[in-house]
Amino acid sequence: MIQSAKGADFVVVKNLSKNYGRFRALDNISFTIKQGEIFGYIGPNGAGKTTTMKILVDLIGDFEGEAFIGGYQVGREKTAIHRLLGYLPQNVAFQEWRTINHALITFGKLSGLNEQEVEDRIPKILNLLGLAELRQKKISQLSGGMIQKVGLAQALLHEPKFLVLDEPLGGLDPLSRYQFKEIVLKLKNQGTTILFSSHILSDVQDVADRIGIISHGRIKQIGTLKELKARLQAEKTIEVLLSGGSDKWNEIGSIHNIKGVTEPSPGSLLVHLESDADENEVFDELIQLIAKLKIRVHGIQLLSPSLDQIYLNYVQEEQP
């Protein structure tokens, strides 16, 4: 059965483990993805991202634990799950004798579309991806980026309810990456549930509603970017950008709950807060002191950890 209510868990992964011989690729991972949500899945090479995705799309079996997509159990209700799926693998490949048109007709029909639906949808999807003029071109004549786009076209053609994108932005130029993210966000708004992995953290940050960080086969953290930032006990820092030279900034260090002030580059001050400091209080005091000392500034902001910092923090935790 398909759970169609928006906000309900569309994908449920429970205690999933997978061994390749003696190597434990996945170690008891669990997460859920809500209907219409984009779940960003990040982790270093060999962390288990692709294995998780391949289990969900039924390319890998012999795993421990359970997974459900739209209420159907992975590995058992294969046909029902295949009808819900769209998948773009990390290294998408086609039979090279096919043209783009021929490949899309075949995959469309295999996904259950009829002749008319295939004919109607192919021009639309090719226009959307900027491939319309290449429709009759052979796959063997396409660049890596173009093949990636054809890969996305086959994944979207049948309008799947659950889209699995494994490193979809590799090999794409900046414009194509931007367009790709726009398409992903549009699909989310139409109710498509998306599992999205990428090494390019800024891309995940741009589109993901929630992020899962995996390392050494284990889920390290799951949450929204805001939640992940809040959980990370990183040093709180306020950046002050001076608009003119001033030698009075040393006095900033006298504010309560400030650990120290550094000037990493001329005109840029970093105010380091004590770990238990209330950043809003310090912020207010800092503004008052700057006004009192008549220090001219053109910017002041609280620095929060970036996704890169969060990622490195959790991924480096286990490094020897």
């Binding site: 290294n91 086609f94 086959q154």
Partner: peptide
């Protein structure tokens, strides 16, 4: 060739 290039992945995730 097709097996090693993962050409079959796109077929096997479909209802066939």
């Amino acid at each position: 060739n097709e097996k090693n290039r993962h050409v079959y992945d796109l077929f096997l995730i479909r209802p066939l």
